[in-house]
């Protein structure tokens, strides 16, 4: 099972994602943004950072990069894609997941540990998460306020597309509509979330809850590979 981690010039969580994906049992390799070849990756992670500086709008330029065409094709073939933080912003800009991410309600960069509820365990991204477990992981972003028109939010919730929500006293760090922290694409093979599971993959660092999410991804990709 091979995970490809896309490296834009301003990615700064690519190493973290590779490290955590390996802890989750995957073979993990970087994928350079200028090279459209996915080099046989079974699943793709778009990591956090500031892809091309993001001076215009987070993720706005990254969607036009050579590798994003291949990531899109991979997703259209049903391949698994996980976007974390800036990766979520890129996925949203590229239309691979619904909604948009605006500046935080506080208008400030927010770093804090948050708690997430997991709405479903029957997806490729959550299958290894035990029932009734909430996930502790950090957020670190300036543009993570999930936004979508009310009717689309209703539809998203109705189809089970809201996968993670902020809960507990740590609260909603960015003013996201309906406390949305992460969403699923319509075909449920692309997931974007603002919190950082890769930074919560070792007890030493404060939590290994994020590893549950990455293990789900690795296991699901492995199963798909075996089935194919």
């Amino acid at each position: 099972m091979k995970v490809g981690v896309v490296v834009f010039p301003g990615s700064n969580c690519d190493r973290d994602a590779i490290h955590a994906a390996r802890l989750a049992g995957a073979q993990a390799e970087p994928l350079w943004h200028e090279d459209p070849d996915l080099h046989g990756a079974d699943a793709v992670i778009l990591p956090g950072g500031f892809a091309y500086g993001d001076y215009l709008r987070a993720g706005a330029l990254a969607r036009f990069s050579p590798i994003m065409g291949s990531v899109r094709e991979h997703a259209e073939r049903g391949g698994l894609v996980l976007g974390i933080c800036n990766g979520f912003q890129v996925l949203a800009e590229a239309g691979l997941v619904p909604g948009a991410l605006l500046r935080n309600a506080s208008l400030r960069f927010e770093h804090r540990w948050v708690r997430l509820t997991v709405t479903r365990r029957d997806t490729a991204f959550t299958s290894a998460i035990p029932p009734d477990v909430t996930l502790l992981m950090p957020v670190a972003h300036g543009e993570g306020c999930y936004t979508s028109p009310d009717d689309k939010l209703d539809a998203l919730e109705a189809r089970g597309g809201v996968l993670f929500r902020y809960v507990g006293p740590e609260g909603n760090p960015n003013g996201s509509a309906r406390d949305v922290a992460g969403v699923l694409s319509e075909r449920e093979n692309v997931c974007g979330l603002m919190p950082h599971p890769e930074r919560a993959s070792e007890r030493l660092l404060g939590s290994d809850d994020g590893l549950l999410l990455l293990r789900s991804l690795v296991t699901s990709a492995g199963q798909r590979l075996a089935a194919a």
């Binding site: 969580c13 190493r15 960069f109 770093h111 670190a140 890769e198 930074r199 660092l205 404060g206």
Partner: peptide, 8 residues
Amino acid sequence: RYDETVGS
């Protein structure tokens, strides 16, 4: 205001 966990 500071990202203190990047780098894992």
